[in-house]
Amino acid sequence: MKEKMINAIEVQNLHKSFGDIKAVQGVSFNVNQGEIFSLLGPNGAGKTTTISMLCCLLRPDEGDALIMGHSIRKDPNRVKAVLGVVPQDIALYEDLTARENLTFWGKMYGLRGSTLKARVIEVLEIIGLSDRANDRVGKFSGGMKRRVNIGVALLHKPQVIYMDEPTVGIDPQSRRSILDSVVDLKNHGMTVLYTTHYMEEAQELSNHIAIMDHGEMIACGTHQELVRIVGQMDRITLTIGSSAANEESDDILRAWKAVDGVRQVTSDDGAISLLADDSNQVLPSIFEAAATNGVRITSVDIKEPNLETVFLHLTGRALRD
């Protein structure tokens, strides 16, 4: 018999403004239990504001969300009880040790006595810091702090965990370790809502991805579904000589747009991105147009369709920091 899949998170038409700035506009999506769902978008896209509303830190202007069936508007305390939150910033007390931090946060999540003590020891093992448990967090490296930051959210074994850009500003080794731990959480049955502006992370981790820009959700689906939006188009990134980039860029952009098989041309700081049906077919014409306009191409990069291509296709801009 097929078991019915229940939504861990149901987001319904969320809106939030700060004065005249519309931070989130009509965002809706569902997250299945036990999956990793990523919110992908550049800085300022509205990812953190959405997460802040979902963890009852901000009250939505409109809309609602159900977390394990509990409304963020009507039942915030029940929502908080099933949630673990890993904030973007390292929200720890630097003058307390790792153990003291975990013990304090465990108490805030309602753990007491021997349960708390045992859970702190378990979490220290999970984050690989048992041997540094009695050192002050202020003395830790950025990666170690990030691990404690994640550990805090695991203390009460939440059903749903929000991770807001947990890999920002850390070394590749710590980043790898964090990505592995996110997959572990999923394997232990937790539902993970993950925000990032790193396309590769979303692509590697997620069952479903929602792309956000300017407070709106512009696409949502599996990686394959999203890539299908741009069809089989290749993304060609060209770098041109600096003098040409400054003086004759408009002419060359128009010339490349006119090439048969080129669907979209965008320019950003000397790097020019083209979406083309078939790179092998259009590249000779692109070089010919460059030569005609006196533009020197210094590098060419061809990529098959990915989330970056999708974002470029949908917004006309590159997905950057």
Binding site: K80, A91, Y93
Partner: peptide, 16 residues
């Protein structure tokens, strides 16, 4: 410091 380090925000995501 609690507010600046976002510990306060984190506290408010618990049932406190």
């Amino acid at each position: 410091i609690e507010r600046k380090s976002r510990c306060l925000q984190r506290l408010l995501t618990t049932a406190t």
